[in-house]
Simulated assay, not measured.
Amino acid sequence: MFTIEHEFDSTVITLIDEGHAGLFEDVTINAFDDCVTLEQIDPISDEPVRITLSMAQLRDLAAALNLPEGSYRIEEGPAAPDADGA
């Protein structure tokens, strides 16, 4: 389950773990113009742990979800031609 809220300067997505034993704490994702943060409460310290990803890191993560094992670099370049070669 997840929720989506639109705040003044970000979109907030909360991922809620449900449906099985050993549930994890909710994960809150804040999407800003220049970065994305992921936050989760550490069950041992009861303190939030935050990870900040740049937009380039987020782009790489999205690409990595669909690639086989290996090392990759996404190169910025001119747009690919459309289907008719124009």
Rank of each mutant, 00 (worst) to 15 (best):
G22S: 07
I74W: 00
I51K: 02
A31M: 15
E75T: 10
S45C: 04
Q57I: 04
E39S: 15
P68C: 04
E69I: 05
D82Q: 13
A63Q: 05
H6S: 11
E18G: 07
R73W: 07
D33Y: 10
D82E: 15
D26R: 15
L67P: 02
D84P: 00
P78C: 00
A79V: 10
G22D: 13
L58T: 12
E5A: 14
D46R: 05
A56L: 04
Y72F: 10
F2M: 12
N30I: 00
T3F: 03
G19T: 10
A21Y: 10
E5L: 11
A62Y: 06
L15I: 14
S45I: 03
M1H: 15
H20S: 12
E69S: 11
C35Q: 12
R50Q: 12
Q40T: 04
S10V: 01
A31T: 11
L53R: 01
P48D: 02
L15F: 09
H6A: 08
L67G: 04
M1N: 15
T3G: 08
G77Q: 09
S10A: 12
F24G: 13
I44P: 00
C35E: 13
D26H: 15
A56E: 08
A62R: 14
I16P: 06
G77H: 08
I4P: 01
S45P: 06
G85F: 00
N30R: 12
A86F: 02
D9G: 05
D82H: 15
E47Y: 01
A86W: 00
T52W: 02
R59I: 07
L67V: 09
Q40M: 08
Q57M: 09
I51H: 03
P78Y: 00
D46L: 08
I13C: 05
N66V: 03
D17T: 01
P43R: 00
S54L: 10
Q40L: 01
G70E: 01
L23S: 13
L65N: 09
E7M: 08
L58C: 13
T52A: 14
G85D: 04
E25S: 15
G85Q: 00
F32P: 08
L58S: 12
E18F: 11
A63L: 05
I51F: 06
D84C: 07
G70I: 03
G77K: 07
L67F: 04
T52D: 09
F8H: 06
R50M: 12
A86G: 03
G22I: 09
D84H: 11
A86V: 04
Q57Y: 03
F24W: 13
E75S: 07
A56M: 02
G77N: 09
T14R: 14
P68R: 06
L53F: 07
T14H: 11
D82M: 13
L67S: 08
T37Y: 02
V36G: 01
Q57G: 06
I16M: 13
M55I: 06
P81R: 10
